[in-house]
Write a protein that binds this DNA or RNA. Structure first.
Lengths: 133, 133
DNA sequence: TATATAATTAGTTGTATAGCTAATTATATA
DNA sequence: TATATAATTAGCTATACAACTAATTATATA
């Protein structure tokens, strides 16, 4: 398919748009961190990430059992689409809310995050919402 | 919905992408000309155009029975997305082919175009493909 | 070497949407 | 004023795809 159309289709989904937005803020994110942000199954996140990678918007890096994702600026003239997207991401309520939530997610170790995700809530981190403090 | 996501969704369809590409080349195009380009039903084109207008990417102007469509640069910072899109549209085989076909379409009066479209092929313009000359 | 685990892939289901034809609307003209 | 016509809207169908759970793969560790 047309590469440009492929990129547009990749970004034209709320959850992939959110992933992209998150990756503009952090150097790289682990699959489990993105899963925590979107609150959908890991399988779904994996598929979304695959679509973004195929479109050339995101790249991945495997480190032992963990896989990290980042914007793929190198591949295409990404900064160019970022010129258009970045100001808009900053105006998006959804993306702004996500960045706040990500703040909290990044404060938790990936191990704890994954433990929580498979229902083994170990620590007093029961609620994922900020405890209003 | 998020305005940016709305625009991405609007452009993330092959036919709407083609309409947008066509409108970057011509000041404005009549609905029937776009119908001729895409070779789908007028109803389908009308719906696609509606989606582009709702997204703020395209504007319309009614003149008697004809409706003309053009890029809606005024509304948003369109030039900005055009910075990203224009070079890519030039690299798209689909869009380039469309522009050649449009050349031929623009040479026919809208009246004849519509006559053809409802099967009243009046003139010797039976085939829409270029007669290889 | 067997078990645990992070991620992906396979297989399924429900929803969204692109396409069609038919009906309707708005405008021009006989 | 009745008819023709460009475009839109309504109603329908088929396909695309986002989500899930279950199964599989790849890596680490007991």
């Amino acid at each position: 398919m047309d590469k440009t159309l492929l990129k547009l289709k990749a970004l034209a989904d709320r959850n992939r748009f959110r992933i992209f937005g998150a990756l503009t803020q952090y150097e790289e994110l682990c699959a489990c961190q993105i899963t925590e942000l979107l609150q959908v199954s890991g399988a779904t996140v994996s598929r979304h990430l695959g679509i973004l990678v195929t479109a050339g918007l995101v790249k991945s890096r495997k480190e032992s059992r963990w896989v990290y994702f980042a914007l793929d600026e190198g591949c295409d003239e990404m900064d160019n689409i970022l010129d258009w997207l970045l100001p808009r991401l900053r105006l998006s309520d959804q993306i702004q809310a996500d960045l706040e939530v990500l703040d909290g997610i990044m404060a938790v170790s990936r191990e704890d995050l994954c433990r929580q995700q498979r229902g083994e809530a170990c620590c007093p981190v029961q609620k994922k919402e900020k405890a209003d403090g």
